[in-house]
């Protein structure tokens, strides 16, 4: 049972039950919707970008524990990051959950995101963890996904 507990760590369960920054953002400069048709996970990520700095992040949607907690923790870790730092963090996070790097090599950079280390033992769940990040990247780069702030 040990690796189940490693997957569903206390921090993950906490963010599943009480997702942070879980709301729409009326003044968002960027937003995109992500959908995983395989399991029905659906998230919308909102970003407020000032110059090249992310000043606010939020999300809405419904998904499994891994997806929801990943989105919640992502919103916290992106605030005050530069856009290219955010993209880079996504790369490191993806490497972590896919088992391409060891957690201790990246722990500083990832900080609390390291709680997702256990995902590597569950290849079917990698997409759940990365969906919010893909969506964030889509929001920042996809032209069509940019919304006007009226």
């Amino acid at each position: 049972m040990t690796d189940l507990r490693e997957l569903y760590q206390q921090v993950i369960l906490d963010h599943t039950k009480k997702p942070r920054n879980f709301h729409e953002m009326a003044n968002a400069t960027h937003h995109a919707e992500g959908y995983n048709p395989l399991c029905g996970d659906r998230v919308t990520v909102y970003l407020l970008v000032d110059g090249d700095t992310i000043t606010d992040v939020s999300f809405t949607g419904s998904g499994c524990a891994i997806c929801t907690s990943s989105a919640s923790l992502m919103t916290q870790s992106l605030v005050s990051k530069k856009i290219d730092e955010a993209t880079q963090l996504f790369g490191t996070f993806r490497d972590l959950v896919m088992g391409n790097v060891e957690a201790d090599q990246t722990i500083d950079e990832l900080d609390r995101l390291a709680v997702f280390t256990g995902v590597r033992e569950f290849p079917m769940r990698v997409k759940c963890a990365t969906l919010p990040w893909h969506t964030m990247k889509e929001a920042l780069t996809g032209g069509a996904a940019t919304i006007s702030t009226e």
């Binding site: 039950k17 029905g40 929801t68």
Partner: peptide, 29 residues
């Protein structure tokens, strides 16, 4: 309070194979 996808992973851990998702029937969901 438990998403089907998490149920599937935990059941699999116990050797139990079930299907989770929309079962190719989104209108039913």
């Amino acid at each position: 309070g438990v998403h089907a996808h998490d149920v599937g992973t935990i059941l699999d851990h116990g050797g139990v194979a079930v299907r989770t998702g929309h079962h190719c029937c989104q209108p039913v969901m």
